[in-house]
Design a protein around this nucleic acid. Structure first.
Length: 365
RNA sequence: UCCGGGGUAGCUCAAUCGGCAGAGCAGCGGACUGUUAAUCCGUUGGUUGUGAGUUCGAGUCUCACCCCCGGAG
């Protein structure tokens, strides 16, 4: 087990700025991990990610075990050798697919119909761990049971308890020294279950903690209350990763509550759908309003896309289905998201996070 | 000038025997959060080229005219 030491360098209220040390480098927090499910951030390559200043990338166990297979990736040098990304990686355990693909769940694990060829595939806490160790990310996530909300309290408790049992099973088989294993807090939007899940997961003495099961149908107020309940029970000296959260308002809410790490398809998926994230508010590039607009996507943005291309050109590319549109908008949206968190980090260290956050939100409104 | 084909939403086209004028695209709006999503959902547009006629009822049948395409001359 890699210890993944986390140093809190500054705090401002509950918000904190820190550094997470991993086998492939240090990650300044708070920060955002672009999602590269199949070993690639859709439409981008590793040089794009380097230019963006991304410090860590996420990949997915379920998808990579099916294609090309964990063993193939392992023989090609693990995720780092295979993809060419030399910075830190985190692999999700396949737990999200328990939610999104609705497999049959038993105590042993989850039984899926493969999304690629329809064959039956099984993932349990041990097999997810084995595949993640083969993939060789800096951080592996324990296989968890994630359910959509709203859900009956008993179902939320059952998923939470199962996640705890599965996490202990994952720990029992994990043995890579260059890889950290994070546990995942569940509990829906029930404050008591969240607190209990966080407390019992923290007792497992893992190097970091995911806060999972959010952004699955609950309101922002419910999500924030759930975050408060979890974070109150998690150790201050370890990293807190809010899984699957990526919109500006949601991320800033979480940073204000003491979260350090995020990942989400939000910036990249929205980019492919033509939605542009900006400091002055979000909009769709596809509309007629942009047809002859020579301005950049965002007047104040310094990203590669905004330095070189107009809204009119990007609208044209998106409308005509040119693949470059996805790359250029993904670069912009990721740059925007990373900048918000870089700004938050600086503001925390200077003791002005509340003002920073209020300014960002006001400009977007 | 003659022969043939055609004219329906911004565009390309459907519409059974004469029986409530539709679709795709475009446009407009919404959704999307540990990726089965370059996706999905919703929605505004009509004097059916013009004018008469037949009929309970015409995009559809009849007549005249206008316009477009092809062929002939």
């Amino acid at each position: 087990m890699h210890p993944a030491p986390f140093t809190v360098e500054a705090t401002d209220g509950a918000a904190r700025a820190g550094t997470l040390e991993l086998a492939h480098g240090a990650v300044p927090t708070p920060t955002f991990m672009p999602v590269g499910t199949r070993g690639v951030v859709k439409a981008l390559d590793t040089t794009d990610l380097e230019a963006l200043g991304a410090s860590m990338v996420l990949a997915n166990t379920y998808h990579l075990m099916l294609r090309p297979g964990g063993d193939v990736v392992e023989r090609l040098g693990g995720l780092h050798g295979f993809t060419g990304w030399s910075g830190p990686f985190l692999t999700d355990s396949g737990g999200y697919q328990v939610f999104s693909l609705e497999p049959t769940i038993t105590e042993a694990g989850a039984e899926f119909r493969s999304t690629y060829d329809g064959s039956t595939v099984h993932i349990g806490p041990e097999s997810s761990m084995a595949i993640q160790q083969a993939l060789g990310a800096d951080v592996a996530m324990a296989f968890d049971h994630l359910i959509g909300l709203p859900a009956p309290r008993e179902a939320v408790r059952e998923a939470m308890e199962r996640t705890l049992r599965w996490t202990e099973r994952a720990m029992a088989v994990h043995d890579r020294d260059d890889q950290a294993l994070f546990g995942i807090v569940q509990g829906g939007v029930d404050g008591e279950l969240r607190a209990e899940s966080a407390r019992r997961t923290a007792e497992l003495a893992l190097p970091g903690f995911g806060i999972g099961g959010l952004s699955v149908g609950e309101s922002a107020a419910e999500r924030n209350a759930a975050l408060d309940a979890c974070i109150a029970e998690l150790p201050a000296g370890k990293v807190r990763y809010v899984m699957g959260l990526g919109d500006t308002e949601g991320v800033l809410d979480a940073v204000a509550r003491g979260a350090d790490l995020f990942d989400c398809v939000w910036p990249t998926r929205l980019a492919r759908h033509g939605k542009v994230l900006t400091a002055a508010g979000d909009y769709n590039i596809r509309t007629l309003a942009n047809v002859e607009d020579g301005r950049p996507l965002d007047d104040d943005c310094g990203c590669l896309t905004c330095r070189r291309h107009s809204r009119a050109y990007l609208r044209h590319l998106h409308r005509t289905g040119e693949l470059t549109a996805h790359r250029l908008l993904s670069i912009h949206n990721l740059h925007y998201t990373l900048e918000v968190l870089r700004g938050a980090r600086v503001a925390i260290s200077e003791g002005r996070f509340d003002g920073f956050r209020a300014g960002v939100l006001a400009a977007r409104a």
